[in-house]
Design a protein around this nucleic acid. Structure first.
Lengths: 148, 148
DNA sequence: TTCATATAGTTTAATATTAAACAATATGAC
DNA sequence: GTCATATTGTTTAATATTAAACTATATGAA
């Protein structure tokens, strides 16, 4: 094999394994969300609100890496279930502040606890050092430019 | 922090970085596919056919981790563009063998070359050893049971 | 043979997702 | 103030995705 081929081969292999791992872990962890009738996006929004407090839709979109159009729909659906509520900001009337309702807070606390446990369980196949190492490597890959 | 908290904290951190890295890399690499008017799924199907030869839809579904219903649609769309064709197997008439057309083969070869280059570029932020290490860690995470 | 069961692929209904066009509001130059 | 430009969120149209019900075919036991 020429050096270029080796390089390509290694890169493709690593890429494939990264993608498989992410999809595999996501699909298992998301079952916990589905059990509470939450999609991954819905969980992402509620979790952002739980840990960051009230946010405008644009910030939520940036946090969960979805389009603002999509966030409008996700919030619509959460609002129908009274898990969040929209509040127009008085300072800048373009903004909507999204807040958890009491019911929403209660739900996301419960579900987050279970999702957290699922994630911990997933990561237990790696030692502490391996987890740290994986984190460092992933961070390097994520650092490049571009949406995402 | 109690030991349990440290464990949880580390697991959540690693999980988040893994997801971010995967989404980030995917979103950049998929631009190369979009430039050829291929979705990630369409590219996945064509690439599977390129490297594994003709496959039935069930095997394709397993390969790209999508439902068989979805594969039906993806193949429909590729067939409309004359990139693949369906052929009923004579041995077992339930199976459809999906084959690349000449046009499809030509396209996926070109696009795969560009996607490959994009992936190599992404991975160049890591040294060879880091890529190998990442591959090993990801493989461990992907090995658990369950869909995906 | 016949019937129960399994498997491949399709269809349907519900939902998710995006890009792009749009409305409402804000900001800043003049 | 006024107008050009930015920004926030919504809508629309096109597509993607899944689960579940369904059709057609195959397999194997009695």
């Amino acid at each position: 094999m020429k050096p270029t081929d080796t390089t390509t081969y290694r890169a493709l292999n690593t890429y494939t394994k990264l993608m498989r791992a992410a999809e595999s872990v996501t699909s298992r962890v998301s079952r916990t969300m589905a059990a509470a009738d939450l999609t991954i996006s819905q969980f992402g929004v509620l979790e952002a609100l739980l840990h960051k407090g009230p946010l405008c839709q644009r910030d939520i979109a940036a946090k969960i890496l979805k389009s603002t159009g999509n966030i409008t729909l996700v919030i619509d659906n959460l609002e129908k279930r009274s898990l969040v509520r929209r509040e127009r900001t008085s300072v800048d009337r373009r903004y909507l502040t999204i807040q958890l309702t009491g019911h929403g807070l209660e739900l996301i606390r419960q579900v987050f606890t279970r999702v957290e446990a699922a994630i911990v369980a997933e990561m237990q196949v790696l030692t502490n050092d391996e987890q740290e190492a994986l984190g460092v490597l992933c961070k390097k890959l994520g650092l490049r430019e571009g949406r995402g």
